[in-house]
Design a binder for these strands. Structure first.
Lengths: 191, 191
DNA sequence: GGGGAAAATTAAGATACCTTAAGAAATACT
DNA sequence: AGTATTTCTTAAGGTATCTTAATTTTCCCC
């Protein structure tokens, strides 16, 4: 169990003393997942949140009609879960699947709540994460509502060059809310 | 300055003792806004977050081409600001305008940070708010990506009946990401 | 309560994006 | 390395949604 990367990430936002770091570390469980493996499947209960040490994951929703919508990608130093279902202890609405082999740190809801109570500064760290996550979603919403597919595609490439390089166009299309065929057409336009 | 409604709202999530309640109350400023008045305009600095005691507000973005996209509505017991710009002390990307006369409680970023430091349980309350806000945006994103405009309209009516009743269809259309003309067509369909 | 502005409706023509299907290219499996 | 599977591309025809504009309805303000 190597919490080095997580502790460094936390350190960017708050200071934890050594006992706090150790308590946190003792709540974490290492989890390796192979490419294509699922960390969470729709309808399952969602009891964990994951910190990505390495690799790349994709969270996506499958509609009753089978439409695949990508909610987010998570790469090194990101946290990922189905937040709505995690927080409210409901069955997942989202699948989380490894795009590449991953090393994760897993934290259960029960442990997280305990860590919040025992380490207020960790709760601050998490509050900041949630502010950022909310802000990011709001920004994405603005762009989805006001921009065309081509503009959204270019924004995505610029904003997440590392992710763009490692996921398929089908997955990018699913993130943008368009079909792979249409993304292909967009790319074919000589800008 | 009447923090009763806010304190009741906080009480649903965490317990504050009397001195904490008083400290919080002393950080708040009452603000009345009339219908159509702006609480925040795009490009202004966004230094406050607002709790709605009564009334109804709309946050929306205007694109360079003048397209109006509604980010959120806020009614009684909601907090509202341009979170991204508030947190990062950047110029606002969002306008916030009163749809009806409002009574607000205003909290500055500096006061909020102070309250976080002095009242850890308030930071917990806020962490929970941010989790919920993030979850809500994620849910909305799923629905925007996977549902048709008509489905989104029906979802909106069911989810926010009180809001639907008080905003124009033009504003609902802007929230759904469609034109008022198309919303009108959707409504005209029998069933 | 009447006049003026904004909102809602309707309709016709335009465009962004989808569906299907087939072939080509890339990637994975043995 | 060779085959199978998945991805990407292309193209034709279809649908959802937009634009414009004119008309009606609602609502706001004096």
């Amino acid at each position: 169990m190597d919490p080095t990367l997580l502790l460094a990430h936390i350190r960017k936002h708050v200071k934890l003393d050594l006992p706090e770091q150790q308590l946190l570390a003792s709540s974490l469980v290492e989890k390796s997942v192979k490419r294509k493996e699922f960390v969470l499947k729709q309808e399952e209960s969602c009891k964990h949140i994951y910190f990505v040490n390495s690799g790349l994951l994709r969270a996506f929703h499958l509609s009753p009609q089978g439409k695949d919508s990508t909610i987010m990608f998570a790469t090194k130093e990101w946290w990922i879960t189905d937040m709505y279902c995690f927080v409210n202890r409901l069955p997942a609405m989202v699948n989380i699947q490894a795009v590449q082999d991953c090393e994760l740190l897993s934290l259960s809801k029960d442990h997280l709540d305990k860590v919040f109570s025992e380490i207020p500064r960790f709760e601050r760290y998490f509050r900041i994460l949630m502010e950022n996550a909310y802000s990011r979603e709001q920004l994405r919403m603005i762009q989805n509502l006001s921009n065309t597919a081509k503009e959204r595609y270019n924004t995505f490439l610029n904003k997440y060059p590392d992710i763009s390089a490692h996921v398929t166009q089908k997955q990018i299309a699913s993130y943008l809310g368009i079909t792979p065929e249409f993304l292909s057409a967009i790319r074919a336009e000589k800008d």
